[in-house]
């Protein structure tokens, strides 16, 4: 009885302590970034007003001008998805537990991929803009680096999840490493490969919003351009186009998934 009481009391103390820490952290945060609560909550209606008054109605005069950025964005997505899926595939086979030729290769590639993934995409894009100048090239390479970091990890996880037993059986027939890869591992990995590659394509469309900000082309650059000129009604049109693109691509990839898997 006493013990139970003590545990209950300890639990209560713990809960109070976490609550206290939480409140302290919040207060510290507000103080540290000089967060003005009143101004913030006053800002919300202003922001909504901004969205619904300054942006409305969307200006559709320049629709023809947006065709090219839309095509650019789609082409970016296709090229970056295909190239990064090929590179990531090779890396994934070299870094998955069950297919890595050597543990050193596996660990080394894992850290490289983790680094690529954890350096923010916008930083990659900016550095590449410095390297290649403004234009399509830095955009493509930034998307490819995003794709490699993202796909290599997901492919490797799918490869590690496949049925080991079938691989063992093919090994037992005297198959070589390459035969085992092609005859036992790849067939089982196909659904994962297709699914993640399609997902990557969806992501590239979303990422093009970021790319435009650093001058790497695509529909995102129109958002930045119109906002810099305070032509918010045009921005509204571009953002709408972008939402429609994202939804359309998601719909199409979903249909492909249903057909293939």
């Amino acid at each position: 009885m006493k013990r139970a009481e003590m545990i209950a009391r300890q639990k209560k103390a713990k809960r109070l302590l976490s609550l206290f820490l939480f409140v302290a952290a919040t207060i510290f945060s507000i103080w540290f970034i000089k967060f003005d609560i009143v101004a913030f909550f006053n800002g919300i209606p202003l922001f909504l007003n901004f969205l619904f008054v300054d942006f409305m109605p969307p200006n559709v005069n320049d629709l023809a001008k947006y065709v090219r950025p839309v095509l650019d964005t789609l082409a970016f997505g296709v090229v970056a998805t295909v190239i990064s899926s090929v590179i990531a595939l090779v890396i994934a086979f070299l870094m998955a537990h069950n297919t890595a030729p050597h543990p050193v290769v596996r660990v080394a590639l894992r850290s490289v991929v983790s680094f690529i993934r954890n350096v923010p995409f916008l930083v990659w894009a900016s550095i590449l803009v410095v390297l290649f100048g403004v234009g399509t090239m830095p955009g493509i390479f930034a998307l490819i680096s995003l794709g490699i970091g993202f796909l290599a990890r997901l492919y490797a996880e799918s490869i590690e999840e496949i049925d080991k037993h079938a691989v063992e059986a093919v090994e037992a027939t005297g198959a070589t490493y390459l035969q085992k890869l092609k005859q036992a591992i790849i067939p089982q990995f196909m659904p994962g490969y297709i699914s993640w590659t399609l997902f990557m394509f969806e992501i590239t469309i979303r990422a093009s919003a970021i790319l435009g900000l650093v001058g790497a082309g695509g529909i995102g650059s129109q958002i930045k351009l119109t906002m810099d000129l305070f032509q918010y009604s045009k921005t509204a049109t571009v953002v709408t186009i972008m939402i429609l693109m994202i939804l359309a691509v998601e719909y199409v990839t979903q249909r492909i998934r249903e057909r293939l898997l």
Binding site: I33, K34, F35, D36, A39, F40, G43, I44, L46, F47, F50, L51, R206, A209, I210, L213, G220, I223, K224, M227, Y232, V239, M242, I243, I246, L247
Partner: peptide
Amino acid sequence: RTIPTTIWVLLAVASMGFGSMAGVL
């Protein structure tokens, strides 16, 4: 959800000006 985070932040910055409060918003 469909509108990318980047765009939300851009809009907030345009409305509130540069700074952490725009980031939070």
